[in-house]
Each structure stands twice: as C-alpha cells, then as structure tokens.
C-alpha cells in the first residue's frame, strides 16, 4: 500500500463506507441540532418557529436537570467501581484451576446475555419486591422488616441491577487479560520474595491496567445511556431520585411530545458525554499507548 495508485484505490474503495457512516451520524446530528432551535411540540401543530436557545434554557433550568446530572454520574461511577472491583476478584477466582471450570465460566458470563428490560423485570419482581421478592423473604426469615428497595433506595437498586449486568463483561475482559500474563513473571516475583498480595499489586494490577482502561471506556459509553432499567423499575422516581439524563430527555420529548425540548436535551447529553470522554482520555487514555 505504498504506491500512489494503490493509495488512491484504497481511498476510493473505503469511501462508500466512510460516506455511509458520515451520513448515518451527521444527518441525525444535524437534524437534532436544527430541531433544538425550534419550538416544535407535537401537541401544538402549526408552524415551528425558530426560538433560539429557548429550549436549552428551559431544559437546563428544569428542576430535574441537576438531579439527573448527579444521578447519571453516580450511576456511571457506582457501576464502574462495582464491576471493576468485582470483575478483578471474579477473574482471579476463575483463573484458578478448579473442577467444572467451563460450566462456571459460562454461568458467570450468562447475565450479559439477558436483555436489560428482562433482567430489570426479574430483579424488580423476583428479588426487590417488598412482598414477594426473595430479599423480602430473606428479611422476614431473619425477623426483619422487608425493605422496599425501589422506593427507599431507587438509585442504589438500579446501580445494583446494572452492575449485575455488566459484571460479566468486566470479568471476561479482565480474565483474558489475566490469562495473558506471562507466568514466568509471576514466578520471578515469587523467587524475588513477593508475597501473594505484593504479586497482585506490583505485577498483576499493572498488567491489568490496559484491560481496566478498556472496560472503563466501553462501560462509560453504555452507562451514560442507561434507560431500560429505569423505565422498567422506578420510572425515574420517586420524584427525580432515579432519573438520569437519558431518562429526563425521554420524559421531556416523548412524554410531553416536545421534539424541540428533547432535541435540546440530546445536544446537552452529547456535550456532557464528550466532556466525560475528554476527561477519561486524559486520565487513562495513556494506558492504551505503547
């Protein structure tokens, strides 16, 4: 791929996919931007006048906005901490030779195959329900008052549900990373007098740094847009206690039929996601180099 002709041919041949991708992303983005400057409510048909930043000012001063921002951040950070911490522990355990390893590994991966709506429903009805849920039975068996998770600690419950879904992903990535660690390095550390904990801290954890980076980046992208779990369990409530940005946009645009407002919210979400992405790349992106 070094002659002029071959480079030109390469450009020509990848151009359809590039153009398709660009169109795929730019047209919706452009339309969203355009709608966000219009007064465009489906309940009020008629012309859609240009109103400048009116939608943005309404969205940003919405009483749910600040709550939604903090909830989004708490959700992302909470799930990241739980999945990476738990993922490392599970990966270390699954890396040990044991009986029935293959089956155990498949079981661990299983939650990732359950679609978010279903897993949220299962959690809501079978585990967290204050009357019939397993936890309620457990509490009653211990002589305690059943705890209404979704009403008392809605955000924590959702963090729990989402963590359960994403734990297998983190475990899988970290396990493969752990398996790629040269066993001679661990043996060398053992010869050098490193105890198991120091071996983990000085050898394994640095080796996992890149995999952890990948998990953080990929999960952040998906966790910023958690939606189904909230819709199915708490509907963002009580109040705004479990409303994240995605859910707020849904409430604004679809429940109120306000296309302009929803688009403005979407643009705000894009900007926030990019701010988060820039921070992430600054902090941990260097792990991906070299």
């Amino acid at each position: 791929m070094s002659t002029k002709a071959s480079r030109a041919a390469a450009r020509l041949m990848i151009s359809p996919s590039v153009i398709l991708l660009l169109g795929w992303m730019l047209i919706p983005l452009g339309l969203t931007l355009y709608f966000s400057f219009l007064r465009y409510n489906l309940l009020m048909p008629g012309d859609n006048p240009f109103v400048g930043l009116e939608n943005y000012s309404y969205f940003l001063t919405d009483p749910g906005f600040t709550a939604a921002i903090w909830n989004t951040l708490a959700l992302v950070l909470g799930v990241l901490v739980i999945t990476i911490g738990g993922g490392i522990v599970l990966a270390l355990l699954l890396d040990q030779p044991m009986w029935g390893q293959g089956i155990v590994r498949i079981l661990v991966i299983a939650p990732f195959f359950v679609m978010p709506t279903v897993s949220a429903l299962v959690w809501k009805n079978m585990f967290l329900n204050p009357v019939n849920g397993l936890f309620a039975h457990l509490f009653k068996a211990l002589g305690l008052q059943p705890y209404d998770f979704l009403a008392q600690a809605p955000l924590l419950s959702i963090i729990g549900i989402v963590s359960w879904q994403w734990l297998p992903f983190a475990t899988l990535i970290l396990l493969t990373a752990l398996q790629s660690l040269d066993s001679e390095q661990l043996e060398a550390a053992e010869m050098d007098g490193a105890k198991p904990l120091s071996r983990f801290w000085h050898i394994m954890l640095p080796h996992l740094a890149r995999a952890i980076t990948v998990v953080v980046l990929i999960q952040t992208i998906f966790l910023l847009s958690v939606f189904a779990e909230i819709l199915v369990t708490t509907n963002g409530g009580p109040g705004y206690a479990s409303t994240n940005l995605t859910y707020l946009i849904y409430v604004q645009s679809l429940l109120q039929y306000d296309v302009g407002m929803g688009s403005a919210g979407g643009v705000v979400a894009i900007i926030l996601a990019n701010i988060v992405a820039i921070f992430l790349m600054r902090m941990i992106g260097k792990n991906l180099e070299a």
Binding site: H202, P206, H207
Partner: peptide, 9 residues
C-alpha cells in the same frame, strides 16, 4: 528465566 521475565511496567 528463558523469557527474562522482566516486569514490563
């Protein structure tokens, strides 16, 4: 060791 087993980081 054969692979030297240096700590790469």
């Amino acid at each position: 060791f054969q692979s030297y087993a240096l700590y790469p980081h």
